[in-house]
Write a protein that binds this DNA or RNA. Structure first.
Length: 208
DNA sequence: GGGCCGATCAAG
DNA sequence: TTGATCGGCCCA
């Protein structure tokens, strides 16, 4: 069947949109994906881990679609991507947030810091943690059941009118590229994030 | 070999 | 607003 798996790297943003609503299951917890970001090694995308070419860390991004690219950040968190596009061209969708729909007990145990259930997977580090995954899952498949994480399509695709877009989070470069996508109204998607690019500050203002 | 900094999170 | 905490990557 035709899906994000078959899209070229040049359409990784389309793949990201398509992945919204998909169900992620790993280690007894299921999450419905509500927020994603697209990354590509094509052209000038300094935001991408792949923009300087293949390295030991990002090699999976250049590999087969449907694999997991997991990396550690800030020395203590892990983030997950689903690899897209042709072999040899870097493209991936960062899984940013989701809603826990099964395995609530285990989810709460894995994220004791969560103040509410909507906060269980409300960020890329949290999402990875709530699913009990880490860098050990790097390079595994998410489509054939051979890896710890399995992706399953939702009963119906997310309606286009429910999908909102904005600049990627934590990315200083390429701030004009609206490659973050989320499902409107989802509590797991942080509301404080602005939907439009912030303008550069003109100057600092002193307080009297 | 050294030094800097990040696709983050939670507490002050 | 800031500290935690460490691997990857650039430069010497």
């Amino acid at each position: 069947m035709k899906s994000w798996l078959d899209l070229p790297a040049a359409a990784v943003d389309e793949a990201a949109r398509e992945l919204l609503g998909w169900l992620l299951t790993a280690n007894g917890v299921t999450v419905r994906l509500t927020e994603v970001e697209a990354y590509s090694g094509l052209g000038e995308d300094p935001a991408s881990h792949a923009h300087r070419g293949v390295t030991n860390r990002n090699a999976v991004m250049f590999g087969q679609a449907g694999r997991l690219y997991v990396y550690q950040i800030y020395g203590m968190y892990n983030c997950m991507n689903v690899v897209c596009g042709e072999v040899g061209v870097a493209a991936a969708v960062l899984l940013r947030a989701g809603e826990v729909i099964a395995g609530l007990e285990q989810a709460r145990e894995r994220r004791p810091a969560a103040k509410s259930d909507r906060d269980l997977a409300g960020g890329p580090g949290k999402l990875t943690q709530v699913l009990g995954l880490d860098r050990g899952a790097n390079g595994t498949s998410v489509i054939d059941g051979s890896g710890p994480l399995t992706l399953v399509p939702p009963p119906a695709p997310t309606p286009e009118e429910l999908i909102e877009a904005g600049p990627r989070v934590g990315v200083t470069a390429a701030h004009d590229v609206p490659w973050r996508f989320w499902i409107r109204g989802e509590p797991s998607v942080s509301a404080y994030r602005r939907h439009t690019p912030r303008l550069p500050p003109t100057r600092s203002v002193k307080k009297p």
